[in-house]
Amino acid sequence: MSESARSGIDPATGKPLPKGGWYRSVDQYQARKMIDGKRLRKTFASLAPARRWLTEKRAEVDLRQFKDTSSSDKIPLRRLVERYRDECMAHREADHTRHIPALLDDPVVDVTLSE
C-alpha cells in the first residue's frame, strides 16, 4: 500500500481523500460505498468525479432513490435483442430476417442496459 493511501492524502493535490475514496495509482482513484450490505466500487481518472459519485450515492440512499444497476451494467443491449429475436420472433420471418438485423446493425445495441 502506498504512503498516500495510508495517509488518506491525494498525492496529486495534497488534499484529503473523501471517506470511501482512495488513490490507486497515476490517474486511478477508486470510490467505494456499502449499500444494503452490497459493496459498490467504481474507478475514476481523477478525484473530482470519484467524490461526485460518492456524494450522489449517499444522496440516493438518503432519499431512498438508490437502484442497484450492477447486474445491468454487464449486459449489452445486443444480447437482449438477440434473445428477443431467438425466443419471441423465431416464427415471424420478416422480423427475424429484416427488422431485427437492422436493429443489430445500429451502434446503440453496444451500450449496456443501465446506460
Score class of each variant (00 low, 15 high):
Leu77His: 04
Glu115Pro: 03
Glu82Ala: 05
Ala48Ile: 02
Arg24Ala: 14
Ala90Glu: 11
Ala48His: 06
Asp62Gln: 15
Met89Cys: 13
Val61Leu: 10
Leu77Ile: 13
Ala45Met: 09
Trp22Met: 06
Ile9Val: 07
Ser2Gly: 11
Leu77Ser: 05
Ser71Phe: 12
Ala31Ser: 15
Arg6Glu: 02
Arg24Val: 12
Arg79Ala: 13
Arg52Met: 10
Thr13Asn: 08
Leu103Met: 15
Glu87Ser: 03
Leu54Val: 03
Ser71Lys: 15
Arg32Met: 14
Pro16Phe: 02
Ala5Met: 13
Ala48Asp: 09
Leu40Ala: 09
Gly14Leu: 04
Ser70Ile: 01
Ile75Ala: 13
Thr112His: 15
Ile35Arg: 07
Arg51Gln: 15
Lys42Met: 06
Glu93Arg: 15
Val81Met: 07
Arg98Ala: 13
Asp106Gln: 04
Glu60Leu: 12
Glu82Gly: 05
Glu60Val: 02
Ala12Asp: 04
Thr13Met: 05
Arg98Val: 13
Asp105Asn: 14
Val81Leu: 11
Val109Cys: 10
Val26Ile: 01
Asp110Asn: 12
Pro18Leu: 11
Ser114Lys: 11
Gly8Thr: 00
Ser4Asp: 09
Ser46Met: 02
Cys88Met: 09
Arg6Leu: 06
Glu60Cys: 05
Val108Glu: 08
Thr97Trp: 04
Gly8Arg: 00
Trp22Gly: 08
Val26Phe: 01
Tyr84Asn: 07
Trp53Ala: 15
Lys67Arg: 15
Tyr29Asp: 00
Val26Trp: 01
Leu80Cys: 14
Glu60Ser: 10
Arg41Trp: 07
Ile100Asp: 11
Leu40Ser: 11
Ala50Lys: 04
Ala48Thr: 07
Pro11Gln: 04
Lys67Gly: 13
Ala12Leu: 11
Arg78Thr: 01
Asp106His: 11
Lys57Glu: 15
Pro11Lys: 02
Ser7Thr: 02
Pro101Asn: 04
His99Gln: 13
Asp27Gly: 00
Met1Lys: 10
His99Val: 08
Ala45Thr: 09
Leu113Arg: 07
Lys19Asp: 14
Ile9Leu: 00
Arg64Met: 12
Pro49Cys: 05
Val61Lys: 12
Ser25Phe: 04
Asp27Lys: 01
Glu115Gln: 14
Leu63Met: 11
Ala50Val: 02
Cys88Ala: 15
His91Met: 04
Thr13Asp: 05
Leu113Pro: 02
Arg85Leu: 12
Gly21Cys: 12
Ser114Pro: 06
Ala59Thr: 09
Gly14Ser: 08
Asp105Ser: 13
Tyr23Pro: 00
Arg79Met: 04
Asp106Asn: 08
Leu103Trp: 14
Gly37Tyr: 08
Val26His: 02
Asp95Tyr: 07
Lys15Arg: 15
Arg51Leu: 10
Tyr29Lys: 00
His99Trp: 13
Leu63Asn: 12
His96Arg: 12
Ile35Asp: 07
Arg64Thr: 08
Trp22Gln: 03
Asp110Met: 08
Ala45Asn: 09
His99Arg: 14
Glu93Asn: 12
Val109Leu: 06
Asp62Cys: 12
Val108Gln: 08
